[in-house]
């Protein structure tokens, strides 16, 4: 057991790197792993003369690499957010999408876009997800305590409201191509990801990862509830708001870049828990890497399955996620 656990993290890291290289080679233009290396080496200044043609270089460096890196980061961020929310709210169904954070973030992002604050759109998404989170917890409290089912019901309510408001804004202002583009983004899509998108994703991860990973052990203390955590010396309110703030930031940025990609925060942590257990210092790094790999492959499927048309990746994650949601529901049917 311990040997497999010690090797599981490096193994995931190897799978992640191999997947990333493989994913760059997938697509309408056939590109070999060797060419991928050459392009990367050339742009990093290791290889002065690139053997790869200009066009193929651009496909790798301008299109596929930023997209692959964005997918990895978005997957890691969404999966981590889900795992943290599940622990903090003791709610196995917690997921940024199901609790309405993604819809809130989408509303915030679209509002800022239409106000002309294009550059500040990620900030709008963050405010939106933070607002949705606060509202979800408030509604659950009003219902008499944030039990899993109440939190989900509150999330449904917020998601419905935020989606309606978003649709209204789009209906009111967007036309033609931009309409279709925004709709595709709303369904969750990483198409058109550029280097700055990847940069923003990794900036958010860099800001939130240390906070989340440093509190992995404290999250374990929540296994038996707030009182038990407090009796183990945890400052429960402070930790809760710090970590929920971090997940709202992560979700907001991920939605600003990739739209409302659902269920990643549900599917990945549950699958990983089955393999490595619930201890968070072990769980969180695994969730992060597995989330990145999951997002990468679903996004690769999204852009290649129906080539030349591209599916919003949110459709694929929902196709996988909804049955998992049902399975989790059946597994935990005792809780309400």
């Amino acid at each position: 057991m311990t040997i497999t656990h010690r090797l599981s993290l490096p193994a995931l890291a190897v799978i992640l790197i191999a997947s990333a290289i493989a994913a760059v080679t997938f697509g309408p233009a056939d590109i070999t792993p060797g060419e991928v290396w050459s392009v990367i080496a050339h742009h990093l200044g290791i290889l002065p003369e690139s053997p790869v043609s200009r066009l193929r270089d651009a496909i790798v460096w301008e299109l596929r690499l930023p997209r692959v890196l964005t997918a990895l980061g978005v997957g890691a961020g969404l999966a981590l957010s889900g795992a943290v929310m599940q622990a903090l709210t003791r709610n196995p169904l917690a997921d940024p999408f199901l609790l309405g954070l993604s819809s809130g973030a989408a509303l915030g992002a679209v509002s800022f876009l239409l106000l002309g604050l294009t550059l500040l759109m990620p900030l709008g998404a963050f405010f939106g997800s933070l607002g949705a989170l606060a509202l979800a917890l408030l509604i659950a409290q009003l219902l008499g305590g944030a039990t899993p089912s109440r939190a989900i019901l509150a999330g449904i309510c917020i998601a419905a409201l935020a989606s309606a408001a978003t649709s209204f804004l789009i209906f009111w202002s967007a036309t033609g191509d931009s309409y279709r583009e925004i709709l595709s983004w709303l369904m969750g899509s990483l198409s058109g990801s550029i280097w700055s998108d990847a940069g923003l994703v990794y900036l958010a991860l860099a800001a939130c990862l240390p906070i989340i990973l440093a509190n992995g052990r404290a999250l374990d203390a929540f296994a038996f509830g707030d009182t038990a955590a407090a009796s183990l010396g945890i400052d429960v309110p402070r930790l809760r708001w710090t970590l929920l703030g971090a997940t709202a930031l992560l979700t907001g940025i991920m939605v600003a870049i990739g739209g409302a990609i659902g269920f990643v925060g549900l599917v990945v942590p549950h699958a990983v828990r089955l393999a490595v257990g619930s201890a968070h210092r072990k769980l969180l790094p695994h969730v992060m890497l597995a989330g990145a790999i999951f997002m990468l492959w679903t996004d690769t499927a999204a852009r290649t399955l129906f080539d030349p048309r591209e599916l919003p990746v949110g459709i694929i994650t929902a196709l996988i996620g909804a049955p998992v949601f049902l399975a989790v529901l059946l597994r935990y049917r005792r809780i309400t």
């Binding site: 003791r90 374990d220 296994a223 038996f224 038990a228 010396g233 945890i234 089955l274 619930s278």
Partner: peptide
């Protein structure tokens, strides 16, 4: 304070996949 005093509650359940060893190890957190 958590090193000085500990609490056993009436009955507390969990949905987490924790072994008995994991649960007892929580006591070492402080």
């Amino acid at each position: 304070r958590a090193r000085l005093l500990a609490l056993v509650e009436q009955s507390t359940a969990t949905e987490e996949r924790l072994s008995v060893h994991d649960v007892v190890t929580l006591g070492r957190i402080p």
